[in-house]
Computed example of a mutant assay.
Amino acid sequence: MPWTADDVPSMEGKTVVVTGANTGIGYHAARVFAEKGADVTLACRSVERGEEAADGIRGGAPDGSVDVRELDLASLASVEGFADRFTDDYDALDVLCNNAGVMAIPRRETEDGFEQQFGVNHLGHFALTARLSDLLVSTDGARVVTTSSGAHERGEIRFDDLHGEKEYSQWGAYAQSKLANLLFAFELQRRFEDADVDAKSIGVHPGYADTDLQRRGPEMEGSRLKLGIMKAMNAVVAQSAERGALPILYAATAETEGGVYVGPGGFMNMRGYPEVQEPNESTRDEETARRLWEASEGLTGVGFEIDS
């Protein structure tokens, strides 16, 4: 039988954070967590849009709670502020969903001078996880779920040009960030295991899901042609955002090992029900993962030792 949202167990008493939860797969994952009784924090760049999303969730979640907090992953100061306020208010974190992201946009820089796709998709989430690591380590059975993409297979970590200052490709930068997501997820699992910590780190991808993610690049370029192509592809090929959220829900709640990769198991892994899959072999390169971890600590100024 296929695994669906109906298979998510009771989440009563669980605390969950979902980044980018006001729209797309993040919204639908947060909605199911709340419906199953979890206390869910929607970590959103726009509090206004987050509150609109929360209003759409609360009516169907009588046993859960929904909290909206500002988090701009393009700002390390915002990440630090979010983490400080969250740790002041909560004493546990059962599930952290590193979900928010940007895709194939013209070159922009974050507040801290990072190329935006690498900065938001990877470095922002790296810093967030680091700043919440004490809560994660102290919560029995905590899980960190990091959203990647099938585009990771075309990625390369360009240590000599991480921010695309010498050469920039919209899709190349996106692929690099998605490879970085999995290298981080699997390295985090190794560090959990080395420290004998009762926690799991899992990478996921949503397949081709119909979300706002695809339109932002064409809109920033002002390309009506590309925007039209994206809309047509979403209509013909994509599965729903609700279905695209299933790998996150599976990774966060199903019986599975840490350090695995979960995605839809249907046509070309672009749609279907979630299953454990094998990512590109480059994601298992421990030396590259170690170098990326060290570079990420240096760039963010956030380091963490995971102690049991």
Rank of each mutant, 00 (worst) to 15 (best):
P62W: 00
F86T: 07
L71T: 12
N99D: 12
A100K: 11
S78C: 01
G56F: 05
E35D: 08
D88C: 04
R69I: 10
S46P: 10
D88F: 04
N99T: 03
G60P: 07
D94G: 06
L42Q: 13
Q116N: 12
D89N: 13
A54I: 06
R49W: 06
D67T: 15
G64M: 09
T110N: 10
A43Q: 12
E70F: 09
D88V: 05
F33W: 07
M103I: 06
F114N: 06
A61N: 11
G64F: 11
G119M: 00
E35R: 13
A54E: 12
G81K: 03
L76T: 03
E115L: 02
R58M: 04
L76K: 00
D94T: 07
E51A: 00
R107P: 10
G59C: 04
R45N: 07
D89E: 15
A38L: 09
G81P: 13
L93H: 11
A104T: 14
D67P: 06
L76E: 05
A54F: 00
V66D: 06
I105T: 11
A53K: 00
A104C: 08
G60W: 08
G37V: 07
D89V: 01
C44P: 12
A74L: 07
T87D: 05
D89C: 00
D63Y: 05
F82G: 10
D84S: 14
F114I: 00
L42R: 09
L42N: 12
E111P: 04
V40W: 01
R107H: 14
I105Q: 03
L42M: 14
V32K: 12
V66W: 05
V102S: 04
A43T: 14
R45Q: 15
P106K: 03
G101A: 02
E109G: 03
R69M: 15
G60H: 08
R58Q: 10
E70G: 10
F114V: 06
M103G: 01
Q116A: 15
M103A: 03
S65Q: 13
S65E: 14
S46E: 02
R58V: 15
G113D: 11
R107T: 09
F114T: 08
I105P: 10
S75N: 05
A100R: 10
D72F: 02
D88Y: 04
D72M: 04
G113S: 03
N99S: 07
G56D: 08
R45K: 14
A43R: 08
D112G: 02
F114K: 00
T87M: 08
V66L: 03
D112H: 01
